[in-house]
Design a protein around this nucleic acid. Structure first.
Length: 422
RNA sequence: GUGGGUGUAGCUCAGGCGGUAGAGCACUGGGUUGUGGUCCCAGGAGUCGCGGGUUCGAAUCCCGUCACUCACCCCA
């Protein structure tokens, strides 16, 4: 065992798996870009107050899961536990909402939560998120959900499902919330759950313990208490999703851990990751912008867990990283041959060909083995006899066929061979 | 914060009635003086998590400790 180990609960990705991880990020980002979302790069840490205010003091995330510390100047700093608060802060700070709306942004990177790690749950997690700000149009809600669905589709996974509900708005939520709280107070709940109910009764609905679920069977649901406007909004989201061909299931028990969500709320779930089945989630937030000192604008967005999405891919046997790392593997025998092949490899790379060279004192047999493992389609071999005749051996690694080509035109021969057999 | 499981080679693991370690994969070399994928042979590689105890002797039994892991709460 080495002297130093990685901090607890942090996944590390290295070859070959890191290629799939990168492909997950790239593919999901591509889906966002194709729908018109522009990239925003944000700090990994913010003023602690931003999350306390934006995410909500009553959430577990803020109350017990934040990495908070004082910097050299005595400021209270927190490693970001989620993405939306930072995006909104930046939008307000730079007046990004003063142009055409909706403002459509996406971000990707690391987030931090101090929790006990388990399968698919890490202290440093990777997310890709999207925010569409300034327009409260149900069609936009549908677009956001469709972007995630499209990303998953492009990755090649099929085992995910979309759970959808509405959390209501400022007109109907308070009334429902009071009703739910009243119901919960009549239940023989344990003390921590009781406290959670007082803080935010909605979150109790998410409890997974069977005995609690049983007690909750007759709980009042938001879906039955939506205002006319909220209901209309929700119905139109569903209609647009159907028009987009995005399948979803309604789950009236769905609640989210972050306080700012209103109206449309959704979660992407996948079986086969272990107990943590959520691979992404999001929703609309009506009051967040104003809460953080901005205009009275609503927004909608999602956060997709890259680590968990990779696990989902692996559970389905999907490998997002398509192309092999190498197309041509150069095998020089001796220093003189190496000099020629290094030159050829440079030539090939300049034209965009993925090429590797056998370095060090590797024997021919060992070099050919490396060629095989590299996934290359061709090996280009140059030895003493080739140098004398100014030739190289171009071998097709799948068929085993080998032919002699001129060393001078080797790069062109390789390019032609790659074109001829795609 | 609570509960279960596991710590032996780079990786996945076997061994475990106490007698100072094994397999497969990977890596290196050879069988093939210049040709990979299959096969055969050989090689390098481990303070058996750490500390203490019992014992002539501990990877094995006992105690402690740390780490990892799964699950609860909660979340991506």
């Amino acid at each position: 065992m080495s002297t130093f180990t990685a901090p607890k609960g942090i996944p590390e990705y290295y070859p070959p798996r890191s290629a799939d991880f990168l492909a997950v990020r790239d593919t999901l980002a591509d889906a966002a870009r194709r729908a018109g979302y522009g990239y925003i790069e944000l700090p990994l840490f913010e003023d602690t107050g931003l999350f306390a205010r934006g995410v909500g003091e009553s959430t577990d995330v803020v109350s017990k899961e934040m990495y908070t510390f004082a910097d050299q100047g005595g400021r209270s700093i927190t490693l970001r536990p989620e993405g939306t608060a930072g995006v909104i802060r930046s939008v307000i700070e730079h007046g990004l909402d003063r142009g055409q709306l909706p403002l459509k942004l996406y971000y990707s990177g690391a987030f931090f939560r101090y929790e006990r790690p388990q399968a698919g749950r890490y202290r440093q997690l990777q997310q890709l998120g999207v925010e569409a700000i300034g327009v409260d149009d149900p069609a936009l809600d549908a677009e956001v959900i469709a972007v995630a669905d499209e990303g998953y589709r492009r990755l090649g996974i099929t085992g995910h499902r979309i759970e959808l509900t509405s959390l209501g708005d400022a007109d109907c939520r308070p009334e429902y919330r009071a009703k739910l709280l009243e119901f919960l107070r009549g239940l023989p709940l344990d003390e921590p759950t009781r406290q959670r109910a007082e803080l935010n009764p909605l979150r109790v609905l998410d409890d997974k313990r069977p005995e609690v679920r049983e007690m909750l069977a007759d709980a009042p649901l938001m879906a039955d208490h939506l205002s006319a406007a909220s209901k209309e909004h929700y119905e139109r989201v569903k209609t647009h999703l159907s028009d987009l061909g995005v399948a979803f299931t309604e789950n009236p028990w769905l609640v989210r851990g972050l306080d700012y969500y209103t109206k449309t709320t959704f979660e992407f779930v996948h079986d086969g990751l272990g107990a943590q089945s959520g691979i992404g989630g999001g929703g609309r937030y009506d009051g967040l912008m104003a809460e953080l000192g901005g205009a009275e604008l609503s927004g909608i967005g999602f956060g997709l867990g890259l680590d968990r999405t990779l696990l989902a891919c692996e559970a389905e046997g999907v490998t997002p990283a398509g192309q092999s790392r190498c197309e041509v593997y150069c095998v020089p025998l001796g220093e003189a041959a190496r000099r020629h092949l290094v030159r050829v490899s440079g030539d090939l790379r300049k034209s965009g060909t993925r090429v590797e060279v056998a370095y060090g004192g590797k024997g021919l047999k060992g070099a050919m083995k490396s060629a095989d493992r590299s996934g290359a389609r061709f090996a280009l071999v140059v030895g003493e006899r080739d140098l004398e005749s100014g030739t190289a051996q171009l071998k097709d690694l799948s068929s085993g066929e080998q032919r002699t080509v001129a060393l001078d035109g080797a790069a062109d021969e390789v390019r032609a061979a790659l074109e001829a057999s795609p």
